[in-house]
Simulated assay, not measured.
Amino acid sequence: MNLATSIGIVGRQLLAVSLAMTLMACSTQPTSPSGGAEGVKQAQAETPLLSESEPAATAQQPKLKGEATVQITVNGKPITVTINGDAAPITAGNFVDLVDQGVYDGTSFHRVVRQPQPFVVQGGDPQSKDASVPAQQLGTGGFIDPATQQERTIPLEIVPEGEDQPVYSETIKAAGKTPKLKHTKGAVAMARSQSPDSASSQFYFTLSDLPFLDGDYAVFGYVTEGMDIVNQIQQGDRIESAKVTQGIENLTR
């Protein structure tokens, strides 16, 4: 391998890390490990103890058993998303429940990354409904459950390829596993902070195949129609409406 090739590989690796960091839903709470070199080394050195037991705290959270279809309208045009509750029951159930409650209606896409390569379109912060909220604050909010007045968060939930049960609260990449639902172009996944169980309402569309995210973030569905609309979304564009068009009967809450 010559020097130019080596530099090119290192550059792509650094770019992948940089892009992945922009996925994290911002948090006002401290997170660990840090994003510095020591934190990266620590994360790579530790093989997680994979847990297939559903966290007790999620017993009362919405779950999707089977599939659902969601239509998201942006700039007057529909985007159809197929939600996979078989491979991500809690993650999919949380999203479908929030759609059904109208939580996403009027929210904006606060992060759009297309350069230096197509990456993601991210939205779902309920704060973005309020035009008076400063742009720099967007990406810090989640869904506040009216019943508890607390932010609803869900555990990281990933089903490894070739397995039936999700792994909870742990990334699976360090264990040498790949997820059943991958970050191919048009995937829909949950944004989170460095804490694996911090996802709430923020989600993202992938603009290209992003295999370096596989095993670290929870994919729960795919765009099946309207990817051209996703490709046209600009920062600040709003979700005019999000509706469950099929499969609401598969939601338990």
Score class of each variant (00 low, 15 high):
Asn2Val: 00
Ala4Asn: 08
Ala4Phe: 02
Ile7Ser: 04
Gly8Glu: 12
Ile9Lys: 10
Val10Ala: 08
Arg12Ala: 11
Leu14Glu: 10
Ala20Ser: 13
Met21His: 05
Ala25Trp: 00
Ser27Lys: 00
Thr28Trp: 04
Pro30Leu: 03
Pro33Tyr: 01
Gly35Glu: 09
Glu38Trp: 03
Lys41Ile: 12
Ala43Met: 11
Ala45Lys: 09
Glu46Ile: 15
Leu49Lys: 15
Leu50Gln: 08
Glu52Met: 10
Ala59Phe: 09
Ala59Asp: 13
Gln60Lys: 12
Thr69Tyr: 01
Gln71Leu: 07
Ile72Tyr: 06
Ile72Trp: 04
Thr73Ala: 07
Val74Tyr: 09
Val74Arg: 09
Val74Asp: 07
Pro78Asp: 11
Ile79Glu: 02
Thr82Trp: 01
Thr82Asn: 13
Gly85Ile: 11
Asp86Cys: 00
Thr91Glu: 00
Asn94Phe: 07
Phe95Ser: 07
Val96Pro: 06
Gly102Val: 08
Phe109Lys: 04
Phe109Thr: 04
Arg111Tyr: 02
Phe119Cys: 06
Val120Pro: 01
Gln122Glu: 08
Pro126Ile: 01
Ser128Phe: 03
Ala131Asn: 10
Gln136Cys: 01
Gln136Lys: 12
Leu138His: 08
Gly141Asp: 10
Phe143Ile: 05
Ile144Lys: 15
Ile144Phe: 11
Ala147Arg: 15
Gln149Gly: 09
Arg152Pro: 10
Thr153Tyr: 06
Pro160Trp: 10
Glu161Arg: 12
Gly162Arg: 11
Glu163Arg: 14
Ile172Gln: 06
Ile172Asp: 04
Ile172Leu: 12
Ala174Asn: 12
Ala175Ile: 04
Gly176Ala: 11
Lys177Ile: 06
Leu181Ile: 05
Lys182His: 05
Val188Leu: 14
Ala189Phe: 13
Met190Val: 09
Ala191Asp: 12
Arg192Val: 03
Pro196Lys: 08
Ser198Val: 05
Ser201Met: 07
Phe203Leu: 05
Phe205Tyr: 14
Leu210Cys: 02
Pro211Glu: 11
Phe212Arg: 01
Leu213Gly: 07
Leu213Asn: 12
Gly215Glu: 03
Gly215Arg: 06
Asp216Val: 00
Asp216Leu: 14
Ala218Ile: 03
Val219Ser: 02
Val223Ser: 06
Glu225Pro: 02
Met227Ser: 02
Asn231Gln: 15
Asn231Lys: 14
Ile233Tyr: 07
Gln246Leu: 10
Leu251Phe: 04
